[in-house]
Nucleic acid binder design. Structure first.
Lengths: 243, 243
DNA sequence: TCAAAAGTGTTCGATATACACCCATGC
DNA sequence: GCATGGGTGTATATCGAACACTTTTGA
């Protein structure tokens, strides 16, 4: 029996998680990108937050850990959606150099399990010092990122639709506690990249008992004030068990 | 920089693929299980076909390789659907002992990327000698399997529904080239675990232009002979681009 | 002639789509 | 008073669900 990694065709690899955290800002989905704390020649070092996994954690735990370091939030909703395993993903020597500095290991093969998570875009983030900056960037205007992170984001944007189909409640993690019908509609439009008729959308909302209208309205807007709604998780869960 | 795996909390792991190959037999979905060629004390060593990944292949390639060794078929349709990463999945010492014999490596952490694939159940399989036996087993009567293979199959059975929604064509990989309406209906019933009304199902089929009725009928059956249909991929693709 | 499975239409309710005007507010 | 976005109803098409009897064939 050998314990090496070179003299047998089977190999050990490093395994990471990368998190696509989406937020919603008026019209567009945004994604949380971090800047590496280690120096690189150019400033173009925005990437998805992520980490190699620890010995005693599974990838769900690793993703929670990454998200907690990123936002300070303890239990974020998340979902594993795809693994990215091409040997080519470490084809860029700059990426490998950064990895080896960041993790003090020689790394020639790295696969990643990608996670999708959601966060209210105005939420104050409690950022661990390992990141130089953390910024929301609109998904339709992303910088070029290392590894296959651009591809990971694109896959995530398809995945969120499936997620919403199975669990519409997740959308409300992207909206303020009190939101208007227009905000919810624009969120649907951003997620599905599709326009929705205003009247039909109101009707659809009326059919969702778990979206409850409040008496409160917008203030200080230079047009007719919109009604606020809130998401009622108890009603939502009741409904789910019925179906 | 170190190259070891013990003195840093980040670790290298072994990565495998495991394949859930589904087949359909009159009424039920079945899954292809293999028997390990290495000896174990009891005969209970049926498991999902799988393999550690090679150095220069991604997991899609590894899954194709496993499937080819299993069936002799070169290009099987497959889909990555979930990774299983719990450190507990190697909690059973028997499983680890088998792994280390099979792969001549000390293995304490093993994650797997699970794939779903489909095969006509009557297809003659060209089985590589690495497997002692390869058998179809109905999914509602599976033996206890090593690692988390039972859980992987259960997850696969949920996943196939999503797959069918996005790509109905895959269902026809489970049926003979010529099939009857009842066969297709029973396949839907097996996949969705739900009964379908016969008349409504015929109407639904009539709406799928890519299912074309043939003049041929069953022969030698002791009841009214059923019409055969076939799946027309060209019509199917035309339809897809229209939507 | 019997058993066994094939085949066939209509009605109903729910859901999605298309579409145009008045309302409230701040400036 | 005007610009801005909020809010509302009806008609139509589409889709899924419920439901019962006749046909064909071999034994």
């Amino acid at each position: 029996m050998n314990t090496g990694i070179t003299d047998y065709p089977f190999m050990q690899t490093f395994v990471s998680v990368d998190c696509v955290v989406l937020g919603f800002d008026k019209n567009r989905l945004n994604v949380l990108l971090v800047q590496r704390n280690t120096l690189t020649p150019d400033g173009k070092d925005l990437k998805l937050p992520g980490s190699l996994i620890y010995q005693r954690e599974d990838t769900d735990e690793a993703a929670h850990r990454v998200l907690n370091e990123l936002t300070g939030i303890k239990k974020m909703t998340l979902k594993q959606f795809k693994s990215f395993t091409s040997p080519q993903r470490t084809a860029n020597p700059d990426d490998v150099a950064w990895l080896e500095i960041a993790y003090h290991n020689k790394i020639d093969r790295l696969i990643t399990i990608a996670y999708l998570s959601l966060c209210k875009i105005n939420r104050k983030l409690n950022i661990a010092s390992k990141y130089k900056t953390v910024d929301w960037r609109p998904v339709d205007d992303l910088p070029q990122m290392p590894f296959d992170h651009n591809q990971i984001v694109n896959t995530a944007l398809k995945e969120i639709r499936n997620w919403v189909e199975n669990e519409p409640a997740i959308l409300f993690e992207l909206l303020p506690t009190k939101f208007t019908a227009a905000e919810l509609r624009r969120l649907y439009e951003a997620v599905y990249d599709k326009r929705y008729d205003v009247r039909n959308f109101h009707k659809k909302m009326a059919g969702m008992d778990y979206i409850v209208p409040l008496d409160e309205k917008q203030e200080g807007v230079s047009h007719r004030a919109a009604r606020f709604y809130k998401f009622d998780r108890i009603l939502y869960n009741k409904r789910k068990t019925k179906i």
